[in-house]
């Protein structure tokens, strides 16, 4: 019996002493985001070097991507960034259900982005355009490099969209359980920072791949 009460005491003690340091959480998140910037940044440098080398092939290959589909996905991601920011603003004002509603819209936008992206990729695959395909190997080297970078960078970005959507789902559960709330909002803040980074990467991916043709 005394063991049980000790365990309970320790349990409640550990809950009270749970470490909570918003400033450190925020700085840590930013440091992580910097590694993401350098990850994508390196790929953008590769893109820039080959753009110099194969300027005409890049323009030719880019002209075969659908600008309007790319633009639609841009509008979707920008809107999802707005709803993410609004969700954080709502929870800061302790408006739980508004915050959750905004998170739902954000996830719907993330899924819409992925669906459109998958249609886009399948259209390319159905034209036998994917790395090392027969049709691809007949194309000029510059176009092969362009499509290689296109699939690598939009693929890595799509992976980030999936991870971001999963994080937002977790944030929704935390908000529902009030583990994340106005006075303990770090998890939602950091999820938002991650989501805005995903948006930020796409802001640069979109014009460089779709609009240079």
């Amino acid at each position: 019996m005394s063991n049980g009460s000790v365990a309970r005491t320790m349990n409640s003690h550990s809950q009270h002493a749970e470490h909570h340091d918003p400033a450190a959480g925020k700085i840590g998140m930013w440091l992580f985001l910097f590694t993401e910037v350098l990850l994508f940044g390196t790929l953008f440098i590769v893109f820039a070097v080959y753009l110099q080398k194969y300027r005409f092939d890049f323009r030719e290959a880019s002209s075969h991507l659908d600008k309007l589909i790319g633009a639609a996905n841009t509008l979707i991601l920008l809107t999802s960034s707005l709803t993410m920011a609004l969700s954080i603003g709502a929870l800061e004002r302790a408006r739980k259900s508004l915050a959750q509603g905004m998170l739902v819209i954000t996830i719907v936008c993330a899924l819409a982005f992925l669906v459109i992206k998958s249609f886009e990729w399948s259209a390319k695959f159905s034209h036998d355009i994917y790395p090392k395909s027969e049709a691809m190997l007949l194309k000029p080297v510059g176009e092969q490099v362009f499509y290689g970078l296109y699939f690598t960078m939009t693929g890595l970005h799509a992976l980030h969209v999936i991870i971001g959507a999963a994080a937002i789902l977790i944030a929704m559960v935390f908000v529902q359980k009030e583990r994340t709330r106005a006075d303990r909002i770090t998890f939602l803040h950091n999820t938002g920072l991650y989501w805005h980074l995903v948006d930020l990467v796409w802001i640069f991916l979109f014009p460089l791949f779709y609009l240079i043709g």
Binding site: L51, S81, L82, M84, A85, G192, L193, H196, L197, D199, L200, I203, F204, F206, P207, L208, L211, I212
Partner: peptide
Amino acid sequence: TVLTASMIAAVKGSLVVLYFM
């Protein structure tokens, strides 16, 4: 083309970092 596209993207990126982030 690439220069204008990059500059507009840089302005958009700055807005995201300054306000949304």
